[in-house]
Design a protein around this nucleic acid. Structure first.
Lengths: 202, 202
DNA sequence: GTCTATAGGTGGATAGAC
DNA sequence: GTCTATCCACCTATAGAC
């Protein structure tokens, strides 16, 4: 990924991180790469297609993380690995995490983009639902709606991660400390979710 | 709030909701209110001050919600009321919720703004820490670090709310359904947080 | 594949009339 | 308090030379 195509995408992520969608412009990207503003149009049809490409690269990366988590032998191990993969992705690729999970799709403001984004996000969610359903099917979790449990897990994880990435976690000085906190907190939720009447009453 | 000042702030919130920070412009606000672009400058010094005003109105509103939650008689009741206030604010003022809690402060890109935002957010967090500490002090919660427990509660709540506001909650058709889900999920987390060794091991 | 030149649009903000 | 006229900065995108 050291070609111009890859460098343009990296620069776009950087601009997003610094100033949000409003800070991304073809001219600024070009300036940072010592290119003329128009050179980018040889690599991407227009700005919309560039942003779609960033999005899709992000999802490719995220999918690789999730894919690796399927190596676990039992459903419970695979669910835990999925959580580890989600957290590792957030910490190792914070810029992608923000673009994929922290931008309201309406704010993208393009035709093709929101559909791509929604579809990909839904696919990721279904992956988690599958991990939960496996656990229910083999009896590790109580009977119930896998989607309901998956949403609670995703919500909890996303909340902690997004507060941390936005700098609202003054307690944690480093990623390792946050990782310990994340798992401690999530384990308690999982215990609550699986021990009791969560699935039925919701 | 039917004066021009209030209408400008409402319109700004609406534009943010539709297209994010990049969609907010003095000209668009003016057009929606059938004003000339420059009329707004009689009410706000410039765009930065307008955005700060939106932020501060949002925090005034949020603070009113939290304030009402202090009416509870016991620490536990007040903590629960604070959660109810947080959720009601998110559902009744979703545009403010997004502006206050879902915009990375770097993306605001002004001098005065990020400090205002960070300070106000921190004050809201300290309010939650106080509610948790009360519960610990009277013995309803185990001994331990109130900030740690507060972060877990806030993270969980924020995660669920932001997924819901971003439309990722296909299971819940209406606010009432989401409210039930929210409390069911949060109650399980609270049980886990208070029953076991969460505070010590994190 | 990269450049310059350029068209056409949107934006923030000021000056001065009413 | 609102208007029009205006300035200047920045943006996306195209055409055509190298």
């Amino acid at each position: 990924m050291n070609d111009t195509y890859g460098r343009i995408i990296e620069t776009t992520k950087g601009l997003y991180h610094e100033g949000g969608l409003k800070a991304i412009s073809m001219r600024k990207i070009a300036a940072r790469l010592d290119l003329s503003a128009t050179a980018i149009y040889r690599h991407f049809q227009n700005k919309e297609h560039l942003l779609i490409a960033v999005f899709e690269e992000g999802f490719k990366t995220f999918t690789r993380y999730l894919w690796d988590s399927l190596a676990g032998e039992t459903p419970i191990e695979r669910l835990r690995s999925a959580g580890e993969a989600y957290l590792r992705f957030a910490l190792e690729e914070p810029l992608y995490y923000q673009v994929l999970f922290m931008v309201p799709t309406q704010h993208l403001g393009y035709e093709a983009m929101p559909e791509t984004a929604q579809e990909e996000l839904h696919r990721a969610f279904l992956f988690l639902v599958d991990r939960v359903r496996e656990c229910i099917d083999e009896g590790s979790f109580r009977e119930g709606d896998a989607e309901t449990v998956a949403v609670a897990i995703w919500g909890h994880s996303h909340g902690l991660v997004s507060l941390y990435l936005n700098g609202h976690f003054q307690a944690c000085e480093c990623d390792e400390e946050f990782t310990r906190f994340f798992w401690n907190s999530l384990d308690h939720l999982l215990r609550g979710l699986t021990d009791e009447s969560f699935v039925e009453s919701s």
